[in-house]
Design a protein around this nucleic acid. Structure first.
Lengths: 154, 154
DNA sequence: ATAGATTATGGGTAGTTGTGGGTAATTTTA
DNA sequence: TAAAATTACCCACAACTACCCATAATCTAT
């Protein structure tokens, strides 16, 4: 039995091939197989990485976006920035998804791709970027970081 | 299975040819194929871009407009401004639609056209205009923008 | 330990997609 | 009414993508 039906945890190192494909870890695929899902939505992360959502999770984001009236300029801008880089992908018979060129560039992905489970979504990183981002945020926000750690009983 | 039967997401760069035609991304066409639709309604966007609606979506807008009594001057004005620039187009065998000259001028479209999925409609932009509009609204509305981002758990 | 299954990675091929241009029909203009 | 311009429809080709198969590495179970 897995931790929870729809939960991604752990870290995996895979290779991004010439065609821009990466493997989705078998563990993650099994999490979703119950829903008979073979689709994900990939998009820009808030950090310089790729975010991969299961379709179900993305749909709930989308339904929120649908509620925003296009009469408001901020709404339009917000919807645009959220949806602009998102695209639906499905994995092939080997369990790989194709990362679009613009996302590869945004996340600075090279041959080695680090895949990290983030509970309700998956992140794909260039290992180097991850190191520098994590160090940076630790330096700057360490007190807020500790505060959060206190709230959640580990 | 795709994200959602009628959902447009993602960004695509296509060329607007001499005849004023742009490609509709294959992904978007597939979204509609289930409805056996080959028609769109194109009109002015609220921003300096072209809005492209699937017929079904436009029809629901129209039915809302029908409810507005012509006795009210604002209603008349609103209906007029909404419908005035709208026209129905269908795509050719290659999946392109022709943009009318006045819309090309309104959106300042050049050789390069940026097509953006906006959930229930499609936008066609001159890349330069998009940049400046996005920067502008970020500058002015950044706090409201953050507020929206907080409401929706990404 | 060994056989069988699963998983990760690479590459080939057929079909699709994006782009340009040609020609006939239609509309507009003089 | 005839010429000019515009539009609709068709074909061609290059680039790309989805789909398939092959192989190596890893894991599982007896």
């Amino acid at each position: 039995m897995t931790i929870n039906q729809n939960t991604f945890t752990g870290e995996f190192s895979y290779s991004l091939d010439i065609k821009g494909r990466v493997n989705i870890p078998a563990k993650f695929r099994n999490v979703l197989s119950s829903d008979n899902e073979q689709s994900f939505v990939i998009t820009r992360g808030m950090d310089p990485c790729v975010w991969v959502y299961p379709v179900m999770v993305w749909q709930s984001i989308e339904s929120e976006l649908r509620k925003l009236s296009s009469l408001s300029r901020i709404n339009r801008s917000f919807v645009r920035s959220t949806v602009r880089y998102a695209s639906s992908v499905q994995y092939d018979k080997q369990g790989r998804i194709a990362i679009t060129p613009n996302l590869i560039e945004y996340a600075q992905l090279g041959k080695e791709a680090l895949i990290i489970g983030m509970v309700n979504k998956i992140e794909i990183w260039n290992p180097k970027s991850l190191d520098s981002v994590d160090q940076e945020s630790h330096k700057i926000d360490s007190s807020e970081f500790d505060e959060l750690a206190n709230q959640i009983i580990l």
